[in-house]
Design a protein around this nucleic acid. Structure first.
Lengths: 165, 165
DNA sequence: CATTATCAATACGGTAGCGTATGGAATTGA
DNA sequence: TCAATTCCATACGCTACCGTATTGATAATG
């Protein structure tokens, strides 16, 4: 899934990789689609909180949390997220799950900026800019060389985002 | 291609859609891969300059050009770009073409910020932030509702990006 | 007018994948 | 112990593709 996308999740390949036959697969899952739905649900549970929880656990004020967020995201392997996002262009269930995750994350970013004292519109615009940028970095994936990740120009980016305006 | 990704570009489907048989297809193209390579090359030519040229044609100073850029990108249909980006995760040729396009676009953004008097590191950080954000908006595609596009909070975002610091 | 180039149809063999039917082994529980 | 449940294998039919070989049909050209 992460390596080659949802399309590459094939019953027979999977069975072979596990050293069983597909006769077995169809005992555990109704069909291929049931497997994909299960994967999707597992991802959604994990993706919603994984990063946010890490940031919260790390503590600090809102500015510190934002720094933590950039740093964590720069290290995260975005392949699974990317695969789901691609998948969501075709599949309504995936679309739905992804939309929920996006909303949750955006809302979190917004609270960070609100916590710095920004007005709702200002916080919202900043949250969207940052989230879009992070998604962009995810999307471009390995193409974003080290030294070119957002987290590595935080000394420039953060003051920009945080300054009152 | 734009609607369902490179995977959905199938010889027989294409032939049927055109009202011919695949016997004909194989006269025009050596094989499916040759078609994809041709598509890729056409895209690269178009994608490199399409938007930049519009912005330049519109004129104005660097700040005005940046505004124009956001506005145009908000209207653009990013599906083909998205399809290529997805494809590039699997295919080296696509990866290569995409990397070139990304570099070209990033370089253009950088010149805009340099033109505003920013230092190279400052311009570079801003260019990357903006480009990542635009890619993010592209990637999220139709999920980014009207009213939530970057171009619609330019009154907040632009001053942030442009302020000296 | 004959020939050649261009474009398309038909027909074939091959692979990857889905899902079903059915039988067999191992485990568990009354 | 013996029947039910659980897990897996084998074998099958079916579809969507790929690519090739061959044979027209029409248009351009010497």
């Amino acid at each position: 899934m992460a390596a080659q996308g949802a399309d590459a999740v094939r019953v027979e390949r999977l069975a072979e990789a596990l050293g069983v036959t597909k006769g077995s697969f169809y005992w555990h899952f109704k069909d291929r689609n049931a497997l994909l739905e299960a994967l999707l649900e597992a991802w959604q549970m994990q993706a919603t909180y994984a990063i946010i929880d890490q940031v919260e656990a790390n503590g600090g004020d809102c500015r510190a949390r934002l720094t933590t967020l950039f740093t964590i995201v720069a290290r995260v392997d975005g392949r699974l997220d990317r695969a789901i996002r691609t998948w969501a262009e075709q599949d309504p269930s995936a679309r739905n799950a992804l939309d929920q995750v996006d909303s949750r994350r955006l809302a979190y970013l917004e609270t960070l900026f609100l916590g710095m004292g920004f007005s709702l519109p200002a916080a919202n615009a900043r949250a969207r800019l940052v989230y879009h940028a992070l998604i962009g970095q995810f999307t471009m994936g390995p193409a974003v060389a080290h030294g070119a990740r957002l987290s590595e120009s935080l000394d420039i980016i953060l003051p920009m985002l945080i300054r009152e305006g």
